[in-house]
Amino acid sequence: MTTTLPAPAPRDDGPAARPGVTKGIRPTWTGRLRVRAVKALPPDKLLPDTQPAYVASWIYVFGALTLAAFAVVVLSGAVIALKGPAWWHVSSIGLFFNSMHLWSTELFFFFMVVHLWGKFFMAAWRGRRRATWVTGVLAFAASIATAFTGYLSQQNFDSEWISTQAKDGINATGAGAFWNVLNFGQMLMWHIVLLPAVVGLFIGVHVLLVRRRGVVPPFADDRAGGPAAAAASVAGPGVGQGAPAAGLFEEHTPSSRETAQ
């Protein structure tokens, strides 16, 4: 809604109007949303041009590679969607895009699994990053369901064999009463609309959480580096990536960290 004229008499917002909220108007939902969003993810945190010095390993590129493979999966699927599900059986161009769709899916899972191994061995959930891990695993699970419905949407021997086999598992959970893997139309809809949206949503939240919380720091390793190493990792120069904040998942304070040593 835009009600601009005449300018309303400035409301008394108190001596210090909330930062980020336009002065002189009553706070709007939109304004509040903006304030919250910018506070959670200021531009230099959303798109940083530096990373902590410990971010120096090829293992870190597998998140980006997974995202890239996801993009190719979506794009090749979109091309197939232009002509419909039967196109690739009768056209060499269609077959090529189907091949791209298959191989990008293989690469997507390949990179995602390497990414998952890497994040596991870094214990990347530490320090209020549990939600990042959880959304990542949920994206993985939703991807498996999406790939499964893709196999069912191929209209070939694979589809009929996989659907007639998988029905027993799905039926055993009770879900088969509502989610009929033998119904091609239903499975195609899930494959090209519902499940990609779910995967995209989980990936989106996951990436925003990564940006919000930053890349997990190394273990302050007493055994190898000695007390000095631990000290270096808590008291390096610079203003830091963000003050230790208290919140749902963060229940320690720096002082408690030092007493624990």
Binding site: A53, P217, G236, G238, E251
Partner: peptide, 23 residues
């Protein structure tokens, strides 16, 4: 404050940063 658990908690990094081009 609860006890610091190394598998759950971290001290956030305040050390040096390096140029890194995400885009």
């Amino acid at each position: 404050p609860r006890r610091f658990k190394p598998d759950r908690d971290v001290t956030e990094w305040t050390g040096p940063v390096a140029r890194y081009d995400l885009a």
